[in-house]
């Protein structure tokens, strides 16, 4: 069974005023079929965790380990990590002018599988997946993320996740900027992937709203670059009622 293990992960970033440590010792294990919610206030380093796992060159791992099924992800390039089974649904998906969604999806699928998908079944598979996410078929001929609404971008991210079938998917604030209908459609997509049992999900979010549609088995509170509390779904309810205040430094309330 696919397992992501994060051990004592420290990550820093170069800024104009010098090197700054953002992740300060993160430990977490996510297995296929599990959904973990990572919740925390703005600026706590949640997105850094997502991008560090994916291997974004801006972030430097200074300490700790990161493995997927025992394989060391830290020695892999971004594309190698994706081919090893990692997927990052981005908060701000990037426009790629002149590259159509259908061409992009086929290229990505071929890269991840190591061989081009069989044309006939692939076209059908894409169409059905788009249909489930209530995406217009004309969408496939548009350029990647160009002129997409916020909701379209997030559906497109989930579409990729469904088609690429990763072992471990990190969803970085996938709920941000979505109206209720889009939130439901996107959540259904995530639930389908998890219930297939082959994928573990790390759901990074600021708000509890998405947790009405996606039930995590594990909830983790992330503050100032590390986890400060672990629990089950009830932790999310408590956060919704009380907010993050009790986790913040005393100076914040002084």
């Amino acid at each position: 069974m696919a397992t992501l293990e994060i051990r004592d992960l420290h990550v820093s970033v170069d800024t104009e005023s010098g090197t700054k440590e953002i992740l300060r010792g993160v430990d977490l294990t996510v297995r296929a079929g599990e959904t973990h919610a990572v919740m925390g206030p703005n600026g706590s380093g949640k997105s850094t965790l997502a991008y560090a796992i994916a291997g974004h060159p801006k972030y430097t791992v200074t300490q700790g380990s990161l493995t997927l099924d025992g394989e060391d992800l830290l020695t892999m390039s971004v594309d190698e990590r994706a081919r090893a089974g990692l997927f990052l649904a981005m908060q701000y998906p990037v426009e790629v002018p002149g590259v159509t969604v259908s061409s992009f999806l086929r290229t990505a699928k071929a890269a991840v599988d190591g061989e081009p998908p069989k044309l006939r079944t692939w076209v059908k598979e894409v169409r059905e997946a788009m249909d489930r996410l209530r995406m217009d078929p004309a969408f496939a001929e548009r350029n990647v993320n160009e002129g997409f609404s916020g909701g379209e971008k997030k559906r497109h991210e989930i579409l990729q996740m469904e088609l690429l079938r990763p072992k471990l998917a990190v969803l970085d604030e996938t709920d941000s900027g979505l109206d209720v209908d889009a939130l439901r459609v996107v959540s259904e997509g995530v639930n389908r992937v998890v219930s297939a049992g082959q994928t573990g999900v790390l759901l990074i979010t600021h708000y509890t709203r998405i947790l009405r549609y996606i039930q995590p088995q594990f909830v983790h509170v992330f503050v100032d670059g590390r986890f400060v509390e672990h629990g089950g779904p009830e932790l999310a309810d408590r956060l919704e009622a009380e907010g993050y205040d009790r986790f913040l430094a005393p100076t914040a309330s002084a």
């Binding site: 990052l88 002149g98 290229t107």
Partner: peptide, 26 residues
């Protein structure tokens, strides 16, 4: 752009070609 494409498993050189080809496509 490069990071986005590589995060989908597409190797560096192929991703770069995709972006440049896309730039000239219109």
């Amino acid at each position: 752009q490069l990071f986005y494409l590589m995060a989908r498993g597409i190797p560096h050189d192929q991703a770069r070609r995709l972006v440049v080809r896309g730039f000239f496509a219109d």
